[in-house]
Design a protein around this nucleic acid. Structure first.
Length: 687
DNA sequence: GGCGCGAATAGT
DNA sequence: CTATTCGCGCCT
């Protein structure tokens, strides 16, 4: 049979092979080593935590010129050909054994520049991760065709357009100082609270572009990181207005390999000195970096979802420190981490005077939950407070109206329709929830389905979903305002802009389209649901989303109105108050004070250690921790896994991370079967 | 992670 | 004594 024949063939083959002279274990480089600096220190991409360090190789004479620091190379490592970056060339080796030769220079392009290497190292340390992991985030995959197609030398450039005379920074007294300082080669650092502007020449993209222009006037480059693709488009347009064409590039993950690498190469080769992009752009190899800016610190898109999960804020701050560049955090709201840096003096506030705020920001009204619902049948059918309905109705005579609704399935918990008590499982008292949009309610702890719900407080039998999905809301609202065109913008289908003509725009947070001339009114629905989310950041996140939508409305001077719906009215809530007063600085300060009292991030450093019970305990036992680290837990985390939270005072953060990095190295070296996940600054820790 | 090496083990 | 397997440590 075929099988036997195949076996015989294999045997024969093996016989032949065994008679051939044995291949020497190490292929000695027949070629002489380079005369100058014959040793290269190479960061080899092994993917293994305990091998995350440089290894030395000899540089053959034929690669002497091309194997420069920063280039990609192929090297033999543990019997396989691996990729690596040349970190440096040197006359001699520290390694005492025999060195293998660099096998190939993949491309003479020095893609790993010293400044980016330094930032990547700092980032790896900050997050207890490996340099290899960070470099994978920082340097896009090579695209040979792009490398070949792009000219080596920068093209000649036209003069910069004149600087616009009313500045987008006019409303912020400290803003002009900041620009002058950057322009003069300094390294100021600031947290800027932006105000709404219906005029594109005065809005936040224009302000960021102006900052980049001031930096460029001083001979230095800029990196501007924004949360998403739509923001990139807006800032890109503003940069074109401020710099003309050819001075800036956009850098986003969704560009496709060739376009992305081409844009990145333009930065590396110095063709462009200004970059606008999403989070990975934070590592762009801009020459003579003068300014690192990011918009909307609280947007979770600024957090990289791949190990070691760095936040743009930390990457940019590290680069600013290492390169002596200015740092600018902009947003309508201020997050607690940014507030912490304001408090420590690392960032100076750039804020408008109260009088300016009153004119620029829209008027904010609060419609209580449930009140006035029944008086207007049209409002009731749309689940709108009557105040919100009347406001929208009036505003629709003057322009578009934005309705912000929470993301569908975002808060899937259920409550009693009658008394609003959280709905609990009759078996284990766990919270009831809709596992998926449209699915039957079930317990989040024991997984049992719900049959015949009865509220333990009032005996009610009706369940209420805290969140009304965007689609349903759109239909309901359409009926409440007959004859008005309705647009929706949400996950999957996001609108960039809407016209100044009357229309109803239903959007989820972060997907709100910009309206020409600003919205006549903005309705923020389900405030209660937003505030009640069981996460630490529920308050600041609510303020951020509300301000983000409200800032698309016309200012009070242009009769812009915002109605916050479904907010608790029986008590004052700081988040609500800060929106009404348009005072995000006050809220951030208050929120941070509270976190400090409770020893919660960002006033402490936290890390999560997640694994099945046994390896988790082993890992914790072998972990060498600085003195004041508290161990919290373990608590169940997902299926079959447990989680410890480690809490350290900020000054012991580096020591905590060093311990965690050592732990990962040890587990990697010992080939532990199960992975222990380490995450510094874990998101979604419960409140 | 993969591979080579040496110790341990089973087969002769 | 040799063939095979297994576990450990190293990788420049």
């Amino acid at each position: 049979m075929g099988e036997t024949e195949a076996e015989e063939q294999t045997e024969q083959l093996e016989l032949i092979r065994s008679r051939l002279p044995r291949r020497p274990r190490r292929v000695a480089s027949l070629e002489a080593a380079a005369e100058v600096d014959p040793v290269a220190s190479v960061q080899v991409d092994t993917g293994l935590a305990h091998l995350d360090r440089p290894f030395e190789y000899t540089v053959p004479e034929s690669l002497a010129e091309t194997a420069q620091p920063g280039v990609r190379v192929k090297v033999r490592f543990a019997g396989q050909d691996l990729d690596g970056f040349v970190l440096e060339r040197k006359p001699g080796a520290e390694h005492e054994g025999r060195l293998a030769p660099v096998r190939r220079v993949v491309s003479p392009e020095p893609v790993l520049v010293p400044s980016v290497l330094a930032a990547a190292r700092a980032t790896a340390q900050r997050y207890a991760g490996t340099l290899g992991d960070v470099l994978r985030l920082a340097i896009p995959p090579r695209h040979a065709a792009a490398e070949k197609a792009l000219a080596l030398e920068p093209p000649g450039r036209p003069d910069l357009p004149p600087v616009p005379s009313p500045s987008a920074w006019d409303r912020y007294p400290a803003g002009r100082h900041f620009l002058a300082h950057v322009s003069g080669g300094g390294a100021p650092a600031a947290s800027w609270l932006a105000l709404p502007s219906s005029d594109p020449a005065g809005d936040w993209p224009a302000a960021l572009a102006e900052a980049a222009r001031a930096t460029l006037d001083g001979g230095r480059g800029s990196v501007i990181v924004v949360p998403d693709h739509r923001d990139v488009t807006r800032v890109d347009a503003a940069l074109t207005a401020a710099l003309g064409t050819g001075r800036h590039v956009r850098l986003t993950a969704d560009q496709g390999p060739q376009a992305r690498y081409t844009a990145w190469l333009k930065v590396l080769r110095g063709h462009a000195q200004v970059v606008v992009g999403t989070r990975a752009a934070g590592f762009a190899p801009v020459r003579d970096l003068g300014l690192l800016a990011w918009w909307d610190d609280g947007d979770d898109l600024h957090e990289e979802p791949r190990a070691p999960y760095p936040h743009v804020r930390e990457v940019l701050a590290a680069r600013a420190r290492l390169e002596g560049a200015a740092l600018l955090s902009g947003g309508f709201a201020r997050t607690t981490p940014v507030r912490a840096w304001v408090e420590s003096g690392e960032l100076k506030p750039i804020e408008a005077a109260h009088a300016t705020v009153r004119v620029s920001a829209p008027r904010v009204l609060v419609a209580g939950e449930g009140t006035e619902l029944e008086r207007d049948p049209a409002a009731a059918s749309a689940h709108l407070p009557s105040l919100a309905w009347r406001t929208a109705k009036q505003a629709l005579d003057h322009g578009p109206v934005l309705v912000q609704v929470p993301r569908r399935g975002y808060l899937p918990s259920l409550s009693c329709q009658t008394c609003r008590a959280p709905a609990r499982c009759t078996h284990c008292n766990g919270p009831l929830a809709l596992p998926a949009p449209g699915a039957a309610p079930a317990c989040r702890w024991c997984g049992r389905g719900v049959s015949g719900f009865e509220c333990s407080r009032c005996g009610g039998h009706q369940l209420r979903s805290s969140v009304v999905g965007a689609r349903r809301t759109a239909e309901e609202l359409g009926r409440a305002f007959p004859g008005v065109p309705v647009h929706t913008s949400g996950s999957g289908d996001v609108l960039d802009r809407v016209a100044a003509t009357p229309s109803l725009v239903i959007a989820t947070p972060g997907a709100e389209p910009v309206a020409d001339g600003g919205y006549a009114a903005v309705l923020l629905l389900d405030a209660w649901a937003s505030l009640d989310r069981p996460v630490l950041t529920a308050g600041e996140e609510s303020v951020r989303r509300w301000l983000g939508a409200a800032a698309l409305g016309r200012g009070a001077a242009a009769r812009g109105v915002v109605v916050l719906c479904g907010a608790p009215t029986h008590t004052t809530i700081p988040a609500v108050e800060s929106l009404v007063r348009w005072d995000p600085a006050w809220f951030a300060e208050r929120e941070l004070d509270e976190r400090r009292d409770l020893r919660l991030p960002p006033t402490v450093r936290m890390a999560a250690l997640t694994a099945p019970r046994r390896p988790l305990e082993e890992a914790l036992a072998s972990l060498e921790l600085p003195e004041d680290v508290e161990t919290l837990g373990p608590l169940p985390a997902g299926e079959a896994a447990m989680r410890y939270l480690l809490r350290a005072p900020l000054e012991q953060g580096p020591a905590l991370c060093a311990g965690l990095a050592a732990l990962r190295g040890m587990r990697s070296a010992h080939k532990e079967a199960v992975t222990v996940t380490v995450r510094v600054d874990p998101p979604d820790i419960g409140s």
